[in-house]
Nucleic acid binder design. Sequence first.
DNA 1: CTGAAAGCGCTAACAG
DNA 2: CTGTTAGCGCTTTCAG
Lengths: 341, 341
Amino acid sequence: MDRLTIKDVARAAGVHPATASRALDPRLPGRISPATTERVVRAAAELGYVVDPVGRSLRTQRSGTVGVLVPDLLNPFYPPVVRGVQNVLREHGFEGLIASTDNDLRRGAELLDLFRARRCEGYVIASAGRRDAAVAALAGQGVPMVLVNRLTEVDVPSVTSDDACGIRNAVTHLRALGHTAIGHVAGPAGISVTGTRAAAYRAALRTAGITPRPAWVVRAGQYTAAAGEVACRGLLERGEVTAILAGNDMIAVGCLAAIAERGLRCPQDVSLVGINNMPLAEWLRPPLTTVAIAQEELGAQAARLVLARIVDPRADAGSVALATELIVRESTGPVRPAARS
Amino acid sequence: MDRLTIKDVARAAGVHPATASRALDPRLPGRISPATTERVVRAAAELGYVVDPVGRSLRTQRSGTVGVLVPDLLNPFYPPVVRGVQNVLREHGFEGLIASTDNDLRRGAELLDLFRARRCEGYVIASAGRRDAAVAALAGQGVPMVLVNRLTEVDVPSVTSDDACGIRNAVTHLRALGHTAIGHVAGPAGISVTGTRAAAYRAALRTAGITPRPAWVVRAGQYTAAAGEVACRGLLERGEVTAILAGNDMIAVGCLAAIAERGLRCPQDVSLVGINNMPLAEWLRPPLTTVAIAQEELGAQAARLVLARIVDPRADAGSVALATELIVRESTGPVRPAARS
DNA sequence: CTGAAAGCGCTAACAG
DNA sequence: CTGTTAGCGCTTTCAG
């Protein structure tokens, strides 16, 4: 009942193993007579035969496997991305090997080696640093690879969210509420989204007729609540801004803590906007206004691009930017005239 | 630079491929002369050879792969578990295939088939229903398998948290604050933890000298905030309890919403305790008192048990219950004399 | 201790 | 359209 091979199927159908193999391969249309195909398929079904991927891999030099690298599975941003990737891969008979780099480039390189050892046919990488030697090396070899969310200096096909548009909408929203002194708690340097978002923030301010001031921007050392809290304290001490755009929702959580700690209220004293729309955003007090990113779709698109490149390595998988949506909750409100202490 | 085989290593070292293979196998002590071993190892290192797991698998009939099934990767409880599993597996040269069942038994069965097709050598299953035919069938075949957190009717080695102890501590804590009318918002039926926790809740009450009343217990249809909110409303309407033990943190989030909706304050009017200590617990308003579970350790232990059973299938991997810890935050406080409506 | 040979399960290339 | 043959990369007999 356990080890069922193509030979068993062939014997049951009264044909040669090679014929059975061909009959079961849907990509060979008309190469086998309908009658034979029918007999083989029936025999396989009755016996409950499933191909041994190992034997197949050895012969075809293809593993049916894609490496998926995320910075941190514990960060609620990534599980939906992984889910999107897995679903699409499985639809196409592939399996994703999932790993977390813990935001460590060296660990990422090790994991890529591991994936290579396992003969992954392609890679979905959400953990790339702007300067990521391992990723650049792999890209240089022409291995099918798609970056998600974070880009490298080297040009590699990617799927990102259109943060610039989302941030523009957020600033417009704040401007309409009367805010003109809008701060930004940026994420750590060395990751592309940090720069993208900071630039988009400045551009959006200008578009709204506001001249950005350097004193309005502080940097969090990581995309975590703790780092966000520390950074936000610095911003609040200067007492200039009435609204804050956080680099992402985790940083926004830290901002919320810093705001409360200082005896201020959100949104009465300070309005706050996050980015990502993580599940926890709606459970915060106050529920967080945030720029939603279609995380699962991010993963799904990435998987589709990799698969396309696996099927045809020369297919130039262009990069994609997915639309974002501003989710207005209760952390943003009209500016108070007296707020500029 | 790409396809490097054992033959290449053997040639470089001037030995037969079989010899090279033996020299690189650490489990064969003294079967190969130190000099030869040295030469082969050096050659392999210089060339950058890594074994092809496919060729090895085909020969050894072992895939180096373990299937890992969780109910829902988007539920923040599971990523740490997965991480614990992966870390231990990788330390031992194994790779985990990760999949979410979306709390759907049929989907779980499909995924198990997928894993079986990929020749997984063992399984870590965190998604078992109390009556789970697919899991039971697999267990019956003597395939190495360890359940995490959720148990089935069939007896299978498992790693769980000692919820009973944690809940006892939570009730003791509430009792010390003066609460005697303590409610419970249980999770959905059909999952073992739901029953375990409900029973532990009743036992803990009795231990604290309180006679549990049926009217104090309501059931949420899922372990989600939305379901918790609906269930909790029913409990609050009766107006009997001054404290609530939620079936887990997600349900607790829902309780928080229901409490606020009713114009009550936590903890002044109603104290609340969760279970799991998910990351979001400390970001809630008020920060949630909860029973912490060592999730990563849960996964790590499970992986160790499976590996042990893979190495020696007759090893009777006993079940393990990990200690819990009550994390007291701000959602629990002294009972108000006037609180009983 | 090492070499030779065989074969894991599958499919591509080559007949027929 | 189908059978034959061969070999993917590795390890494990079996000889020596």
